[in-house]
């Protein structure tokens, strides 16, 4: 029986009002999610529904207003070494080489220089960036930069990866290559992951489960298990399966995409 790696237990998050007479904004309302060890869960929902807030609470950057986040059964009270996150922006530091960027998390955590260099080298190799160690971020393409960001995230060897639309800034082809890379890496390292995305097919191609969130205040309105879809480590192959289209149609329905297009065309 695999154990629960990360759990959001009845989590809500309210932000103080922007203006004086405004009301506090509830970004996330009473969300409960448990992710098992080695599981990949994708989270999909309309923009501004609090997906990113959920992720920030998972990584300990925000504390929930109500409820709690648990990693391996322990309450998250701030940033912790078990969880690492990756955003749409690669957030590579422009004044550091790719190698130094990959070392960043280890350096912050006080890992000795020789050891972190070794780990960063190994991960850059795994992320197919060998030969680019001494380049600066601006010399690399968007896809390569995002791979370097992945290497930096994996270098700290987190138990849980939290990803906030990591591929949405990339062009369609690069995106598919990176999805492939990520899926294989996660499977090989047996990482647990929560992937926020607004790409319907991506949410199906990469995950074991899809959670659908509602408009703000964000609540989980549906959970779709993808148990009958094999090849989670090979999204390229998975995309081609007819079941994927059926799941995507289901998501379209849940997200009210059709009503929105009709409303806009009137």
């Amino acid at each position: 029986m695999p154990n629960v790696r990360i759990e959001f237990r009845n989590v809500s998050k309210r932000f103080p009002a922007r203006s004086r007479d405004g009301e506090p904004v509830t970004a996330v309302l009473n969300v409960s999610v448990s992710i098992l060890d080695g599981e990949v869960v994708s989270l999909i929902g309309p923009s501004g529904c609090g997906k990113s807030t959920l992720l920030n609470m998972g990584s300990g950057l925000y504390l929930p207003s109500e409820g709690e986040v648990l990693v391996d059964g322990r309450r998250v009270a701030g940033p912790n070494p078990q969880v690492a996150f990756m955003l749409q922006k690669d957030l590579l530091l422009p004044w550091r080489t790719i190698l130094q960027n990959a070392e960043f998390g280890l350096e912050v955590r006080g890992v000795a220089a020789i050891e972190r260099r070794e780990r960063a080298h190994a991960l850059l190799k795994k992320c197919r960036l060998s030969g680019f160690e001494s380049h600066y971020p601006h010399q690399l393409s968007g896809g390569m930069r995002q791979r370097a960001a992945l290497a930096r995230t994996l270098a700290v060897d987190p138990l849980v990866l939290l990803m906030d639309e990591p591929f949405s800034a990339l062009d369609a082809q690069t995106k598919m290559v990176l999805q492939q890379d990520l899926a294989r890496t996660i499977a090989a390292e047996r990482k647990t992951a929560l992937l926020i995305t607004h790409d319907l097919v991506e949410s199906i191609a990469l995950a074991d489960r899809v959670l659908v969130m509602s408009q703000r205040p964000g609540k989980i309105i549906e959970e779709i298990r993808l148990d009958d879809l094999p090849d989670r480590d090979n999204p390229m192959l998975r995309r081609g399966r007819p079941r994927v289209q059926e799941y995507a149609a289901r998501l379209v329905e849940l997200l009210h995409v059709r009503e929105k297009t009709e409303a806009e065309s009137i």
Binding site: N56, S59, G60, L61, G78, P79, N80, P81, V83, A84, F85, L87, K89, L91, L93, W95, F104, G105, E107, V108, R109, V156
Partner: peptide, 25 residues
């Protein structure tokens, strides 16, 4: 970029590290 600071914080960076590694450069 506040996201860069968040990144450093997510690696449990101290205030001094955030200054030395992000804000100063």
């Amino acid at each position: 970029d506040p996201d860069m600071v968040s990144l450093a914080r997510s690696f449990s960076a101290t205030r001094l590290q955030i200054f030395r590694l992000i804000e100063y450069p």
